Simulated assay, not measured.
Amino acid sequence: MAVQDPFLSVRHFVAVAQSGSFTVAALALGLTGSALSKSIVRLEARLGVKLLHRTTRRVSLTPEGEAYLASCLQATRVLEEAEQSLASGKQSPSGRVRIDLPAAFGRRHVLPLLLELAGQHPQLDLSVTFNERKVDLIEANIDLVVRIGALDDQGDLVARRLGEQRLIICGAPSYLTRRGVPLTPDELSRHDCIIDWRAGHRHGWLLGNGAGKTQVRDIPVRYEMGDGEAVRAAALAGLGLAQVPTWLVSEQLAAGTLVSVLDDHAGGEMPINLLWARSQHMALKVRVVVDALLLAAQQGGSAFRAG
């Protein structure tokens, strides 16, 4: 009698959890919905926990299911890395690398590097997402992430500095003519301010405190936008003042469609970091991407320089 693969139901669970649908997962696996459902039931019975909430319209993970999915994905990553490290004579990177980037910065400055790298390595597959919120690398099955800003405690992650970005405050000439040019940070209280609204909370502006250091300062918020490009568009439309990185508005500043203000106070800098999960072995496919981004930063690429 054939021995049942003990991990078959695990693969079935991952397929359902990632697709959020028994129907979609069954089609992808070449199973009937009934067979897939029975496989998940057997897995839950073996583990002694409920992994999925099932309704007529949707499937969602229980807290135990979320934890189990993260463990399954991490185990899969370890197995993939082990296979790659044991593949004799394999010197060229191959396989899929999942990378999460900040939206505007990632599209403008990191994506071109990744596309060039993909052209150099035909067996390298890239999955690139753009996100303005912080993601859990292990839970989301992400290999690399670029983050802008100060890092929290990252004990389970490795961080390498790519560079930094400098912030300025600017507005359209039409707005400054209408509302006046602020000469001190205190005068911001009388202005319409446009902020980058992320992760469900407001972000203050980095301003000089007069002692050569910067600090986060609350400002009156008139408009909230979901990413940097939307903030720039609102400023260009004359809706108010915005604090943005110089790389985002360099062309507009040169053209005079945006004008910087409070230059003696608004030069805050934010670090740009590349992060990945800490492990004893890094797959070649990931190492190639890491090395390419670090090399671009070391060579003084404008993308990673404050200016």
Score class of each variant (00 low, 15 high):
118 A>L: 12
152 D>T: 14
54 R>F: 05
197 W>A: 12
127 S>V: 13
103 A>K: 12
76 T>L: 12
124 L>T: 06
73 L>Q: 09
48 G>A: 10
217 R>N: 10
122 P>K: 09
265 H>S: 14
247 W>F: 13
193 C>N: 05
139 E>M: 04
21 S>L: 05
238 G>W: 00
283 A>K: 03
135 V>M: 10
247 W>A: 08
291 D>L: 02
152 D>M: 09
218 D>P: 12
11 R>G: 15
174 S>V: 14
291 D>G: 07
163 G>E: 03
171 G>D: 00
226 G>V: 14
61 L>N: 01
41 V>R: 15
98 R>W: 01
70 A>T: 14
1 M>F: 10
12 H>K: 05
66 E>R: 13
221 V>L: 00
231 V>T: 13
113 L>Y: 07
112 P>V: 06
93 P>I: 01
230 A>N: 01
96 R>A: 11
272 I>W: 01
66 E>F: 01
303 A>K: 06
90 K>T: 11
16 V>G: 03
193 C>D: 04
48 G>Q: 08
90 K>F: 09
53 H>S: 11
224 E>S: 11
72 C>D: 05
115 L>R: 15
113 L>C: 11
255 A>L: 05
141 N>F: 11
24 V>P: 02
55 T>P: 01
245 P>Y: 04
241 L>H: 00
227 D>H: 15
60 S>V: 07
299 Q>H: 12
195 I>Y: 00
38 K>L: 14
188 L>H: 02
1 M>Y: 09
219 I>S: 03
292 A>I: 11
74 Q>W: 11
120 Q>N: 14
156 D>L: 11
45 A>C: 07
217 R>D: 05
263 D>P: 01
287 R>P: 00
272 I>Y: 02
40 I>L: 15
175 Y>V: 07
74 Q>D: 15
236 L>W: 04
118 A>S: 15
277 A>E: 13
233 A>F: 02
54 R>H: 06
130 F>G: 11
266 A>V: 10
127 S>Y: 12
31 L>P: 01
182 P>M: 02
124 L>P: 04
214 T>L: 08
40 I>K: 04
162 L>W: 07
209 N>Q: 06
23 T>M: 06
275 L>Y: 04
298 Q>V: 03
226 G>A: 15
73 L>W: 05
111 L>K: 02
9 S>V: 10
168 I>R: 03
241 L>E: 04
9 S>M: 12
250 S>K: 11
299 Q>E: 14
215 Q>T: 09
119 G>P: 08
220 P>G: 02
76 T>D: 14
